[in-house]
Design a protein around this nucleic acid. Sequence first.
DNA 1: GACATAATCGAACGTTCGTACTATTTAACC
DNA 2: GGTTAAATAGTACGAACGTTCGATTATGTC
Lengths: 208, 208
Amino acid sequence: MRKGERTREAIVDQALDLATVRGLEALSIGTLATETGMSKSGLFAHFGSKEALQLAVLEVASARFAAQVIKPSRDEARGLRRLITLVENWMAWANSETLSGGCPFVAAQVEWDDREGPIRDYLVWAQQTWLGVLAAAAEKTVAQGDFRDDLDTRAFAHDIYAIALGYHNAQRLLRDPNGEKYARDAFRRLLKDAREGAPNAVASAQTH
Amino acid sequence: MRKGERTREAIVDQALDLATVRGLEALSIGTLATETGMSKSGLFAHFGSKEALQLAVLEVASARFAAQVIKPSRDEARGLRRLITLVENWMAWANSETLSGGCPFVAAQVEWDDREGPIRDYLVWAQQTWLGVLAAAAEKTVAQGDFRDDLDTRAFAHDIYAIALGYHNAQRLLRDPNGEKYARDAFRRLLKDAREGAPNAVASAQTH
DNA sequence: GACATAATCGAACGTTCGTACTATTTAACC
DNA sequence: GGTTAAATAGTACGAACGTTCGATTATGTC
């Protein structure tokens, strides 16, 4: 029972790598078997279906995202500080060298936005969860008086997500050297707008 | 020579429809043949390769984009008016019922951002062109004094694109009823920021 | 209407796909 | 170390993939 889990993990790791580059659907059991040095059937036995393999890939991607983006942000004080760290970590994640093909969720979300089933459901759930984390951080920032209190935090989270999508596109497709600058400027503007009229607006502006 | 062109167009039209839903790579000659009531080989003869078919699909998508988004904007006065119309038309395009699977470029861009070849090249060119159109409209708006003259119009175009990506995601994947509102608000903020300190800032604000 | 050519079809190619089954090897436990 | 179960390999499957080729039908032209 031990060996199986280890190889399964190794398979999924490699599968994630392959999926970020080629896409989650183009991920094939045959090439994955060759890449891992296993037989097709031996590899297949770990999952039972391609869909289960794809879900396993998304799950390990979620775990990595949580470990690299969300978890380290807990070192920062709740509120604005943590919110900024979340975005900072997110940008690093999208550019991570361990994800040779960019953020796996961005690719999968576009791939599955017109299909029904458990994969799509998982993607929606994952993104809603992530937007919830961002919105919660914004909520806390409002409570601390660093954002104005009529801020629509769901909209705010959506806007951050849009910035990240633009960043991903500029980096991955256009290879625009200004991509990072554009994203940072957009985020700064978003923060400024959220701060406008906040109780601590002046003090907050001083620390930045 | 006439009949061939007609059927070819019909094929590509149907192919575009299929590609927006399933993706440009998942577009298969077999299913496309069934869907059009043709034989696989008869259909194939029109293109000579799958890649040529995919390029043909992108070309017709470009033509439609030009016809539905860019061309009608020429009825509007150059500058801010036209810029707003461009974005307005773009949002309508992304939601167009003729594109049952959303904007074909968004899907293809994510699909090909990690692959080399003529398809990727075309996608980059198409997007650069579109960003150029947006930037040119912004440039004109600056020249007319409706935007501040230190505005980075390339960055501005990028930001609009990011908003559109967020809009597409909210509509297609999340099916968020607030998606449109979020996008419009973000665009309004972007305009406001570009207007800040512009020569005609007050007059411009009055017309909105 | 005959002729040339364009358009389409039918059948088959070799691969790869996901999956199913049965062996065989390997690892875990007493 | 032998036994049992887990893990992997082997083989095969039907279907779909893009592509080729030769035959056949439809079209446009004189």
